[in-house]
């Protein structure tokens, strides 16, 4: 299989005043074309930061990143925008449809930023994408007139319309009830079965199981499942100790009183 994403020793440091936060500390990650990868981990572990780097929404502080064979860690904003438009389709937790645009216009949006796509072609491709997600009957509706599940379907259509190399989904079921969540996961599975590469961030193990492969992130690093389990256990143990100490202090104060 062709290697689509290849990240080597990727680091991301955020600077706020004099505080340095190491969000990612030496990430090595490869994703092949046609693969369905789930990135999991606890809150704040860096999985969304990793997704933003994969999707070229942000640039790494250090490390190498090749996307579809092209080195992209050190390109300017315009080049980054062009590659994002061509290679990546995004699905966000909160759907991120533009309220002032109707369904069709929302889906057409990525193509409006692409040179050489005529209006009729744009419309045709948007309609195709909407058909694929079962939303072709709602093209004149505005996002506020749709349910959450419908909005996420439209968002999936928007991600698909540019025929990107990879779909990046950031907690795609996070704002949905379980029924709609399952429907969206089924849709993604169907797309994957059709050959689409998917990389999904989720903290829900039920949905992570939909993927071919799971990548675990903990404290800015990729770990295997066993290590993650061990680290989590250690963390839980530390937490229990702290709770025990706190209770002991409280009892002492009550006795003195």
């Amino acid at each position: 299989m062709t290697q689509l994403i290849e990240m080597t020793d990727i680091r991301k440091v955020f600077y706020a005043d004099e505080v340095e936060t190491h969000a990612l500390a030496g990430i090595h990650l490869s994703i092949d074309a046609g693969e369905y990868v789930a990135i999991s981990g606890p809150s704040g572990c860096g999985k969304s930061t990793l997704l933003s780097l994969i999707g070229l929404l942000d640039a790494p502080t250090d490390g190498r990143y090749r996307l579809n064979g092209v080195s992209v860690e050190d390109i300017n904003a315009s080049q980054r925008a062009r590659i994002r438009n061509k290679e990546i389709g995004f699905i966000f937790q909160a759907f991120n449809l533009i309220g002032d645009l109707n369904v069709l216009e929302n889906v057409e949006l990525p193509l409006t930023y692409r040179d050489g796509v005529s209006k009729s072609e744009r419309r045709e491709r948007a309609m195709e994408a909407l058909k694929r997600v079962g939303m072709a009957h709602r093209i004149r509706h505005f996002p506020s007139q749709l349910s959450g599940g419908q909005q996420q379907r439209v968002a999936v259509a928007r991600a698909l319309v540019g025929e990107p190399s990879v779909l990046l989904a950031d907690e795609p079921t996070g704002n949905l009830d379980s029924k709609n969540g399952e429907a969206v996961m089924a849709l993604l599975a169907e797309l994957h079965a059709g050959g689409v590469t998917i990389c999904m961030v989720t903290h829900d193990p039920r949905y992570a199981d939909f993927a071919d492969r799971q990548v675990f992130v903990f404290d800015g690093q990729i770990v295997d499942e066993e290590t993650l389990h061990k680290l989590r256990q250690e963390e839980e143990q530390r937490l229990e100790e702290q709770i025990g100490q706190a209770r002991a202090r409280r009892d002492t104060i009550v006795d003195h009183a």
């Binding site: 904003a77 925008a81 949006l109 930023y113 692409r114």
Partner: peptide, 14 residues
């Protein structure tokens, strides 16, 4: 929204 448009491929000039 502008960030979203940028994410979808809008260049700074656009």
């Amino acid at each position: 929204e502008l960030g979203l448009r940028a994410a979808l491929g809008a260049s700074p000039t656009a």
